[in-house]
Design a binder for these strands. Structure first.
Lengths: 340, 340
DNA sequence: TTGTACGCGTTATCAG
DNA sequence: CTGATAACGCGTACAA
């Protein structure tokens, strides 16, 4: 049988309570005693039994998800995955409450984050715009002893804040390579659409996309990013204009997280037939479009994986363990009709 | 607080022991009592606390992996992922011993499986050829009360044996579509290589590959599958012959799980430059080849995901729970240089 | 057919 | 600063 805390206490010549204090880094133990316990840990090869530890905590882990209140199919999918986990999580003593944030109101977000207490949250995954207010609020959440990670939309890297999501530059490069390979010898212009070019994810994707095309495909020219602001009418006008202005548009890249609107418009624009269309994120809209051959490929990050990875990382932080890096890197997936 | 077995016992008017019997489907309880307990479960909304249940079992789960003794980079990768899990699994009371099988000896495999006892194994994931002996042996393992699943290489579906691995037909179709899309307007012949055409996986991949090409690309012709039998010399000869016999080879599809040998040969065959090459499984060989642009795409199933999915499914069976279907479907991943 | 009592390996709460 | 001791929710002998 594996050594237990009891064995450890005996080996170190202290009580169970002291063992617990050392194991969990609590204050009020002489350094000498700490060392003795740590030596005994090495000696007998003690490893904490997390199952017992979780049971003894007397309460479930509470890992919150702070998400924008509204935000298209992809966010709905994320929410669905959280709720799905919620059911299974109860038996494992993990709760995953969702906290809704108003995307457009940084102060409101900051206030919501300020209300988080260690009493009700062991950790929180935050998907929010990267404003100074939000960044500061996150810092204060951490200071209160709540573990935090940036979720899907990255926060500035500086403060070593863990991040769960894909590498958007790589995702853009992937889209770019597929676009070029699918176009083959064709030459011409590629239009790029996004909800907004302000989002960091859009910037990074664009960077990756251009890097590939500029480096290897002189026959292809990319236009500046066009902003739809999530507005169907505007998107339609934009697409119409760009096709009118450039007779040689051979490809379209929908860079945003909600490709539904551009896809629907593209469907009606017969002028787009035969062009290569690439979008981001698997949603019902992109899935159907792939099946019908209306778009050619989707670059995707799996929402289920995102959610579970965030939970695993938060839990590992609580138990101050490290995680399996190989498991936590979110893949930049390529979807075509055949591998849906 | 969530209701516990104690609350359940009280609500049903029985003892804890009886609650346990009903919960775990043990014999020796009057139907009337069973019903009473089940009603009480509904009434108070009881859900078993798996953390407590696991702790109380007094022993770790033991989920074995029965794998071929030798088998190329992909299998090495799987083994590495099992070992990786092993370290983290101990704290969660899950052990994952590996059982080595001799791929070429069905009777030996059957004997090895016959030695498995419920004392030492709660479940086992089996990767083995689909011979009658093996199938029968698996049946007997299950009869002894050990949970089983087919791992990576499928067993005939008939007996409702769960399977963890990709849909090989879809994987072949994915490879076929990529091949055709990357070739663009080019016309010509595609050579298909495999270690052996006998393996079910090869058959299924070929089926998917051909289905796509035959349906949509009349300008592309596929040759019969060529067998390398994992032999470098033979593979070289085959490739040489096929290029000599067909002047219009525009693409190569490496269907087997170990693309290292064909890749190395292709690298030296300057005649292959400019052709589209697609292989299966991410290994150091395929990864490097993608980075260097020696091959164009890799169709992949993630070994880490395979391993963890097998473990989760076996565990769910032990706790007779259902699993999150969305999490357990192994993706047919497409890898190019940009999304490695 | 049913119930009692104890144990699992931790954590938390006291008292000293 | 340290130690006893009682939980935590469930499984399992063993008794009845």
């Amino acid at each position: 049988m594996r050594p237990t805390t009891k064995d450890l206490a005996k080996a170190a010549g202290v009580s169970l309570a002291t063992v617990d204090r050392v194991l969990n880094g609590r204050a009020g133990v002489r350094q000498k005693t700490v060392d003795a316990v740590n030596e005994a840990i090495e000696e007998i090869g003690f490893e904490r039994n997390q199952v017992a530890a979780t049971l003894a905590r007397q309460r479930a882990y509470r890992f919150g998800f702070a998400l924008p209140r509204a935000g298209g199919d992809f966010l709905d999918e994320i929410t669905a995955r959280i709720r799905e986990f919620e059911r299974a999580g109860r038996a494992e003593m993990i709760e995953t409450p969702i906290l809704h944030l108003d995307d457009k109101d940084p102060h409101g977000i900051a206030r919501a984050l300020a209300r988080l207490s260690p009493e009700t949250h062991d950790g929180i995954a935050i998907m929010a715009p990267e404003t100074p207010q939000v960044r500061d609020a996150i810092g204060r959440v951490r200071e209160r002893g709540i573990h935090t990670i940036a979720f899907v939309s990255n926060q500035p890297e500086e403060e070593g804040l863990d991040f769960v999501g894909i590498d958007n530059r790589a995702a853009g490069a992937t889209a770019g390579r597929l676009m070029a390979r699918f176009l083959g010898p064709a030459r011409g212009t590629i239009a790029v659409l996004a909800e907004t070019i302000q989002a960091r994810s859009s910037l990074e994707r664009r960077l990756g996309f251009d890097a590939v095309l500029n480096a290897d495909y002189p026959g292809l020219r990319t236009l500046p990013t066009l902003e739809t602001h999530g507005d169907a009418g505007r998107a339609q006008q934009i697409l119409y204009n760009v096709l009118a202005a450039h007779g040689d548009v051979v490809g379209l890249y929908f860079m945003g997280a909600d490709a539904r609107i551009p896809i629907e418009i593209a469907r009606d624009l017969s002028a787009l037939a035969g062009r290569v269309l690439i979008a981001h994120e698997r949603t019902t809209a992109t899935e159907h479009a792939l099946r019908r051959g209306e778009i050619d490929a989707v670059v995707h990050q799996d929402p289920g994986h995102l959610v579970r990875s965030a939970i695993r990382i938060l839990r590992a932080k609580c138990e101050n363990r490290s995680t399996l890096a190989s498991q936590e890197r979110i893949r930049t997936e390529i979807l075509i009709a055949e591998n849906l």
